[in-house]
């Protein structure tokens, strides 16, 4: 739960970075108003460091599991960080948006998680450091029934563990 909360925090921070004016979500707006990089408390090599300064997630197109160019760039950053801090293991969560059926989306989420895993392993991360899990459409991070939310929910999230 702690990790999940941090993921949400990170998503809010990323949204703020991409969009000039955060939308109506009051909690998101207030969290995002403090730039993550300015926080003095983030220890290099910590989970917070990974989430705030590297980015723990990549996004997918509708009903696709191929990694986009921006996703590969994000994973390159993740891989560099994970090589620097090799004690971390990780679970890749695969998620889908709400515009699909439940069972198919579980399979799609598993595909996405494995696309991320395969890329990391291909880039030199030891296979036994990486596990995958699919949540299908069960755990969206962005609320709202519109493309802005759906594009945030079609994601692969790297959750660090020991």
């Amino acid at each position: 739960m702690k990790l999940r909360f941090m993921s949400i925090f990170a998503a809010a921070a990323m949204l703020a970075a991409c969009e000039s004016a955060p939308e109506s979500g009051a909690t998101q707006a207030s969290t995002a108003s403090a730039p993550a990089a300015a926080k003095p408390s983030i220890v290099p090599g910590s989970e917070q460091d990974f989430i705030a300064n590297v980015g723990d997630r990549v996004f997918f197109d509708y009903d696709k599991f191929a990694l986009r160019a921006d996703a590969k760039a994000g994973l390159d950053k993740q891989v560099a960080w994970l090589k620097k801090y090799p004690t971390y293991k990780m679970t890749i969560e695969g998620h889908a948006d709400e515009r699909g059926t439940r069972e198919y989306n579980l399979a799609l989420g598993e595909r996405r998680a494995n696309a991320v895993k395969d890329y990391m392993v291909g880039a030199g991360i030891a296979k036994d450091r990486v596990k995958t899990i699919s949540y299908g459409k069960e755990r969206p991070v962005a609320l709202g029934s519109n493309e802005a939310a759906w594009s945030q929910n079609r994601r692969g999230v790297t959750v660090l563990g020991k």
Binding site: F65, E110, N114, S134
Partner: peptide, 26 residues
């Protein structure tokens, strides 16, 4: 060896048919 989901009984109740997702393939 992976996520199992989408189960359903056979009409005689002797079997369950389901999906296994493993290494990105279901």
């Amino acid at each position: 060896p992976g996520m199992t989901f989408a189960p359903r009984f056979s009409p005689d109740g002797n079997k369950v048919v389901l999906s296994l997702a493993q290494d990105g393939n279901t």
